[in-house]
Design a protein around this nucleic acid. Sequence first.
DNA 1: GCCATTTGGTTTATAATATAAACTACTTTA
DNA 2: TAAAGTAGTTTATATTATAAACCAAATGGC
Lengths: 94, 94
Amino acid sequence: MFEELDPLLHQQLRLAVMSLLISVQEAEFTFLREKTGATAGNLSVQITKLKDAGYIEVTKGYKDNFPQTLCKITSLGLTAFENYVNALEKYIKK
Amino acid sequence: MFEELDPLLHQQLRLAVMSLLISVQEAEFTFLREKTGATAGNLSVQITKLKDAGYIEVTKGYKDNFPQTLCKITSLGLTAFENYVNALEKYIKK
DNA sequence: GCCATTTGGTTTATAATATAAACTACTTTA
DNA sequence: TAAAGTAGTTTATATTATAAACCAAATGGC
């Protein structure tokens, strides 16, 4: 009746990050931080978890001499997100 | 951009319980346990949290000589659930 | 009648998680 | 060259979720 909700996605900040990455396709760390309002520390931890799960791809480089972290959703991440949303909808459908 | 997701509702088992209570209006502990597949211990804890928050009303009585715990959603709980769903939809809308 | 089992839970111990504070490394500005 | 700013990471702590252990009463078998 109630499917498991992927614990990696069923968390506010990680879900917000995935939601953003779906719409923009690629995003900087700072962009994600501004949009989510998260602290850098928290965001850093959650990005690492999403990366470790293979849900996003993280590329570290430089931009204007400053470190730049780019995040991009993977196809695994996209599928996981879709599955999560489908499962979730059974909990909240009217 | 991303509203806070009520932490009380943003949890699988509690969300499932609230979801069930919305459709059936009143339910026994054992019914909730069967429908959610949760262990009795976990369910007991989560029901207490929902009760303490005023999201549900819990009535303890007897049925066929056995203890019976009845749960019913409150208007506060209903509002909280609706707000949660509205907030959540901004994370998952297509 | 009494012992084992079942019903319907609650309490509590442990593991897992989320989060911000503290820190690192480097750059710019004054 | 010292202070302040940028872009993060690490880690310590508090909170949470969960199942195991427990409790009380009822039932069933002998």
